[in-house]
Design a protein around this nucleic acid. Structure first.
Length: 650
RNA sequence: GCGCCUGUAGCUCAGCUGGAUAGAGCAACGGACUUCUAAUCCGUGGGUCGCAGGUUCGAAUCCUGCCAGGCGCGCCA
């Protein structure tokens, strides 16, 4: 995990959610009995007793290693302690009622085997809870803002962005299901030199479509998609900007050799300065405030058109008011077009943001000046030379960071501070940002800034996701938005489908770099484990369709049900679902849900092979139908949490 | 040089806030469809968990050092 050390964890959402299933009851009873015993004997330094679910079936349904941990304090052998603890536990009515046997095993483990009634009871409970099974209980906690994807709107989304979209969206779903109040946010990096270059690139393509010989700037965006953007604008405004751009084209032709050389040297050096492929900066979400506003108007177009960056807007183009106006226009329209494309693409990918927040709006609204003024008044920012700095070293950063450059232009960092101040003022008490690994050097200063703004450490949590490598024929290929070299998210989803793509992207820990070979993915898409899980769901749906009228899911706790190991294995897996959810939420690890879903599907397929639901004794049929029903709900829930559909038939 | 992430089966990866004989999928090989969907199931082979120390009753997991790969260390974004 790449969660920051020292990050303040949100309170566990559901520890005492009042669960009545076997695990919870036994775990609590065992803990109590052990605690009493320890107090009686005066043994100290014994860790809290944990009840585990052994991987090995021979080790029972639950197990605890606590006797080995007690051995030192007790100065007795673990097995002797285990014998004694077993007797104490069997004397406890709550434990005795649910347990078939308790055995001392191995070096001193205590293994619990549940009786039939306990399984039936667990099943009843899960059936009764319905669709809410596994849902965490909401308890007081700060509103959480989850920011992810957050890219420059100057190119299509590529698979790297897709990975962050899949991860962030799934995390959001998991956190909500675990009981937290979460809002998602997309920070639009629509300000700065990259966007200026993009604006000129769109303008050039527009001019070219009229036969004007105006090249896309060397430091601009060469991708074919820019032509489409330009065509869209042409359809809207016709010839309105042709003359201005023809003027630019003629001017460029007339440039002196020195000017051309200087321009291309500058352009070449900036390649590394553009946002690295695969990077994603995430922004925090918003509780229940209106979030559609920015979807309607992703940013203030007027402000955007007026936002002239002193340097860079025009590049080597002539500095004339009409040219400036044109570039600002193309930048704004191009940005809007890209954003609309992204929003649509993300939506078809199953990712919908609560809020789209424009960086430009921070500059236009005076928000940035205000926060810097505030920081100066607080004494956290200071002037040195012609620049203004933030004292981030007071909160763990390596060096202080510039907010306003000597030339008066604010840094990206300054805008980000204003943005995070805005999130805090909107009422979010906990901010989670998902960033690409190429931004991890930015973490300390941002955490320092948020600590200064919020007055406490731990308000900002940054999750670093590793990058996606693009492979072609086994060889690594560098992605570049500027050069238009990438595998786009839509290429991936067209090749293998949304479900397979999301499952593929979410199945790996975000801590792991991901190699993607599109040809390989296409060839192997039929092997995608997502179909294995979905097939289990469809099979259950089929059973339910075929059940004769009159058969209802029911569990007779005293009856002869769940006698096969296949049923028991399935029940145990289902019973562990709430703990798995809590774990996935706590550790920000939605990939665990994909893994769990596969295990659950496997348990079901085995059950299916050995246990008939239809055509057996009524009581057995009813109990197995109940088992199917709960399994179906949990599979559907898992699939939903990773953003994948749960088909009724395949 | 410093910091973060990673190194587990032929391949892709789980497991990492310490537990029992290290798992899954794919690939290879051999079986199972007159029964609720064979996109399934059953079986076989496959490992110095990068290396070396340390802590512990117990280490893939924690600590230290080393090796290898990725990313980062701007008055860039």
């Amino acid at each position: 995990m790449a969660l920051d050390a020292g990050n303040e964890r949100l309170e566990r959402g559901q520890e005492e959610a009042g669960r009545e299933d076997g695990y919870q009851v036994i775990a609590e009873r065992v803990q109590r009995v052990v605690a009493e015993w320890l107090a009686e004997e005066g043994w100290e330094d014994v860790p809290v007793c944990r009840l585990e679910r052994p991987a090995e079936e021979a080790h029972g349904d639950y197990a605890t290693p606590v006797c080995m941990q007690m051995a030192k304090a007790a100065r007795r052998s673990p097995r002797a302690l285990a014998e004694q603890l077993r007797d104490r536990l069997l004397a406890d009515a709550g434990v005795a009622r649910a347990v078939e046997s308790i055995e001392v095993a191995g070096p001193g483990f205590l293994n619990f085997t549940l009786n039939r009634a306990a399984f039936a009871e667990a099943m009843c409970e899960m059936l009764r809870t319905g669709d809410d099974f596994g849902r965490g209980v909401s308890r007081p906690h700060p509103a959480v803002n989850l920011e992810f994807v957050s890219v420059n709107p100057n190119g299509p989304l590529h698979v790297g962005h897709g990975r962050y979209a899949a991860y962030g969206d799934s995390l959001q779903r998991v956190l909500r299901f675990a009981g937290m109040n979460v809002a998602t946010e997309f920070y639009i990096n629509d300000y700065g030199r990259q966007m200026d270059r993009f604006g000129r690139s769109v303008a050039a393509r527009y001019a070219q479509s009229f036969g004007v010989d105006l090249a896309v700037p060397e430091d601009g965006y060469q991708g074919e998609y820019v032509r489409a953007v330009a065509a869209g604008i042409r359809a809207e405004v016709g010839e309105r900007f042709v003359e201005v751009l023809r003027f630019v084209a003629d001017g460029a032709v007339g440039a002196t050799p020195d000017e051309v050389a200087a321009a291309s040297a500058g352009g070449g050096a900036e390649v590394a300065g553009s946002r690295t492929p695969g990077s994603g900066r995430a922004a925090p979400p918003n509780a229940d405030s209106a979030s559609e506003a920015l979807v309607e108007a992703p940013y203030d177009e007027e402000a955007e058109e007026e936002a002239e960056v002193a340097e860079g807007l025009l590049g080597e183009w002539p500095d004339e008011p009409a040219v400036k106006e044109a570039v600002a226009f193309f930048r704004a329209r191009g940005c809007r077009a890209m954003l609309e494309g992204m929003r649509a693409e993300l939506e078809s990918f199953g990712v919908v943001f609560d809020c789209w927040f424009s960086e430009t709006s921070l500059h236009a609204g005076g928000r940035l000046e205000r926060v810097i003024e505030r920081l100066l008044e607080m004494g956290e920012a200071y002037r040195e030379g012609d620049a203004i700095w933030l004292r981030t070293t007071s909160r763990g950063d390596d060096k202080d960071r510039v907010l306003i450059r000597s030339n008066g232009v604010p840094t990206y960092f300054a805008a980000d501070i204003a943005y995070h101040e805005d999130k805090l003022e909107r009422g979010f008490g906990h901010l989670i940002n998902i960033w690409g690994a190429d931004h991890h050097g930015y973490v300390p200063r941002m955490k320092a800034a948020v600590e200064i703004l919020s007055g406490r450490a731990g308000t900002l949590e940054v999750i670093i996701g590793q990058l996606v490598n693009l492979l072609e024929g086994g060889a690594l290929k560098q992605m570049s938005t500027r050069r238009g070299e990438m595998v786009t998210l839509s290429e991936l989803t067209e090749a293998i489908g949304v479900d397979a793509a999301r499952f593929f992207l979410i199945s790996r820990s975000q801590d792991q770099t991901l190699d993607l070979d599109l040809d390989l993915a296409r060839r192997q898409s039929q092997d995608n484990p997502v179909y294995y899980v979905q097939y289990a769901h469809a099979r259950i749906a089929s059973i339910i369709r075929n059940v004769p009228a009159g058969t209802e899911p029911a569990v007779n706790e005293t009856g002869r049900v769940f006698v096969t190991p296949y049923e028991r294995a399935l029940i145990k897996r289902l019973e562990s679902f709430p703990d798995m959810i809590q774990d996935a939420a706590d550790r920000r690890a939605p990939h665990r849900i994909a893994g769990y879903a596969q295990e659950l599907a496997a348990d079901f397929h085995v059950f299916y092979k050995h246990c008939r639901v239809i055509g057996v004794a009524p009581e057995e049929s009813a109990s197995r139908l109940a088992l199917c029903l709960v399994t179906k709900r949990v599979i559907a829930r898992c699939l939903d949490l990773v953003g994948v559909s749960a088909p009724e038939s395949m």
